[in-house]
Design a binder for these strands. Structure first.
Lengths: 193, 193
DNA sequence: GCGGTACTTTGTCGATCGTTCCAGATAGCG
DNA sequence: CGCTATCTGGAACGATCGACAAAGTACCGC
């Protein structure tokens, strides 16, 4: 063996993620990525192969960092209503959290890259489906226990809730008004009544 | 006066809109726009000043072509429930309509351009607010008449419905399943009950 | 019909794009 | 400690970016 890699790969992907979130895929140049990660372009290409490769790594990190904890929360076994509300409030916090205008990578990727890169599309479908499935399991169970409405199937409710989450991200990008977004989220939650 | 303009300005903006919708702002080059509109880049710069200028013209056309008719429908004086359902079904049709994967310009602009160009942000806010206001007027009236629920304010309901519409656009980009989107829309409409 | 004018076309500008390659630096092994 | 495999940062690549100037063209008022 010889010299080992000096930089923290995860930290680099994380830095790249912030750039992609604020500038989009096409709007981000390799120069931007070099500056954000502190790496030379040679190191980036050695580690990820290409700009696309780095973007895919960013998508994976995003899923692991944001989507996976949300799924874990939904599967924690707590009260369905409380857990779903917590997910929505967490999302609103995330949207309006910092002033750096970090758009949702999932929504951005859906609009900009899903139709161009099939690997991106696959990851998006997989990520949203895992979230939808966790919601479905939670809601189906709650319906059996009579804790939420059975007017709509758990499938439709889960899909609708994911749709609302995506909508909140878009609305937050247009107008990051936390109080308003919270009220919209509350209206969405009434579908469980 | 002198030589008249040879091309149809609206047709050119419309062609540019399709390109922007399928490739995004940064992903679209002046060459793409030249080919789509059939104009030389010189003509484009003479007519719109810059790529940004053309993009703003596209946003205005999009509003006039898609958002304005929606507002007109909401203000047509017909039954609130029926009109709102019609708007949602129309949106789902638009999302899943053609196979050309034309993303919603509003959502795409929100994610990619709103944080970079203040003029884009203004147009987005203005467009969504006109839609929200039309919904508010419709729903407030319907509440007075006892036709829909008064559990939530008309303001919140209107905002929530716009949020749902945006969410449907995102979900449609990830997975253009008309039947599923229609069911999600139906769930959203239950907030009026 | 003719001059003037506005529009169109073409070619090209410097800058920047994503990518590749190289020379120097560095850590592990014998 | 020397060797060498690997990593590093930066220079340089051709291609393409958005933008523009000059030349050609068609139309209007006279």
């Amino acid at each position: 063996m010889a010299r080992t890699r000096e930089f923290d790969l995860d930290a680099a992907v994380n830095a790249a993620m912030n750039v992609f979130r604020s500038k989009g895929y096409e709007g981000t140049s390799m120069r931007d990525l070099s500056e954000a990660t502190g790496l030379g372009s040679g190191s980036i290409y050695a580690a990820f192969g290409s700009k696309d490769g780095l973007y895919l790594a960013v998508l994976d990190l995003y899923r692991q960092r944001y989507a996976a904890p949300m799924v874990d929360l939904l599967r924690s076994g707590n009260d369905a209503r409380a857990v779903v509300r917590e997910v929505f409030i967490g999302a609103v916090d995330d949207i309006t959290g910092d002033g750096r205008h970090l758009a949702c990578l999932i929504v951005g990727a859906s609009m900009e890259r899903a139709h161009q890169d099939v690997r991106v599309a696959e990851r998006l479908r997989s990520t949203t489906q895992s979230l939808e499935l966790a919601l479905y399991d939670l809601l189906a169970e709650a319906q059996l226990r009579g804790q939420i409405s059975t007017d709509r199937s758990a499938t439709d409710l889960a899909g609708f809730l994911v749709t609302s989450l995506q909508g909140l991200r878009v609305m937050g990008a247009i107008n990051p008004d936390r109080a308003a977004l919270t009220r919209y989220a509350e209206v969405a939650l009434t579908c469980l009544d």
